[in-house]
């Protein structure tokens, strides 16, 4: 079940689909912009259903109030099959930053489900010709 009750505070651009334009013989990068419209600092971390297929930089961090950051999602080369629709998904999990962050690992571990917010994105592969 969807554990998160809080509405995602960050604005994602793109909001739902990460588009990767081939050819896929080399690394293909999609950009994901995270904007923080709130007056609080927000911690985020990126998760995916296919961790070995992508490099994500940065894959976690903190966004100041009113600030935004760009994330590079780099799809590693693979043998593209036009008939195989990508089932890869990404999740941007967020939490309002505690006043003092001593240990981010512990912060995420101890976070209660109703403090967590998340957004899911699909991956869409396109060939230049399509």
């Amino acid at each position: 079940a969807n554990m998160s009750k809080l509405e995602q505070i960050l604005i994602l651009d793109p909001p739902t689909d990460l588009k990767f334009k081939g050819p896929f013989t080399d690394v293909v990068t999609a950009n994901l912009k995270l904007m923080n419209p709130s007056d609080k600092r927000v911690c985020f971390k990126v998760k995916t259903t296919a961790p070995r297929r992508y490099c994500v930089r940065p894959n976690s961090g903190t966004i100041d109030p009113g600030a935004s950051i760009n994330i590079s999602v780099m799809l590693q080369p693979f043998d593209y099959d036009p008939n195989e629709k990508s089932k890869h998904k990404f999740m941007v999990q967020t939490i309002f930053a505690p006043t003092t962050i001593t240990d981010t690992e512990a912060m995420w571990k101890d976070a209660k489900p109703d403090e967590l917010m998340d957004s899911k994105l699909r991956c869409v592969f396109e060939l230049p010709s399509e």
Binding site: A1, N2, K45, V46, K47, T48, T49, P51, R52, Y54, C55, V56, R57, P58, N59, S60, Q76, K89, F90, M91, K120
Partner: peptide, 14 residues
């Protein structure tokens, strides 16, 4: 949305 997907921490390098 009930999602049956398993999510893992994304890596900053493979």
């Amino acid at each position: 949305i009930l999602s049956e997907d398993d999510f893992y921490d994304a890596l900053s390098q493979t």
